[in-house]
């Protein structure tokens, strides 16, 4: 009697899924891991879970992209948050009144 094609693989995935917490917990732990606050046991569970779960794998990869974007966002201010000409002039006037230490 032979096993159904892919049967062992499916059983293996189910076993790993049983050993790791559900996706909701994994993404919360993944967020902690990003802040260096996940315990070794949790890091192992995250690694095992992301090897069998496409949703969590994508989510955790996208957190890295989000981090990169957040880092870059300060250099890309939206046009709406630029200093107005009046504010610019006001700041310059105030700076002119201040004696500099040089």
């Amino acid at each position: 009697m032979s096993a159904r094609p892919g049967g062992w693989r499916r059983r293996w995935i189910l076993l790993l899924a049983f050993l790791t917490p559900p996706c909701r917990r994994i993404v919360a732990l993944g967020s902690r891991e990003l802040d260096g606050a996940a315990a070794p046991w949790d890091r192992w569970r995250i690694r095992v879970h992301r090897s069998i779960c496409t949703g969590c794998r994508r989510y955790l990869q996208q957190l890295e992209i989000l981090r990169e974007a957040a880092h870059g966002s300060t250099d890309r201010p939206p046009p709406t948050t630029r200093l107005s000409t009046e504010s610019r002039d006001r700041l310059k006037r105030r700076l002119r009144c201040e004696p500099a230490k040089s």
Binding site: S73, R82, R88
Partner: peptide
């Protein structure tokens, strides 16, 4: 050199955005 007025021209927008994104109040940010 010490040219604070150039600071406003060169870095004013950057600094304002930095402050505004954290404080969420344009007057306070300025």
């Amino acid at each position: 050199t010490l040219d604070p007025e150039r600071w406003v021209d060169d870095h004013g927008d950057y600094l304002f955005h930095y402050a505004l994104s954290r404080l969420r109040d344009p007057v306070q940010a300025e």
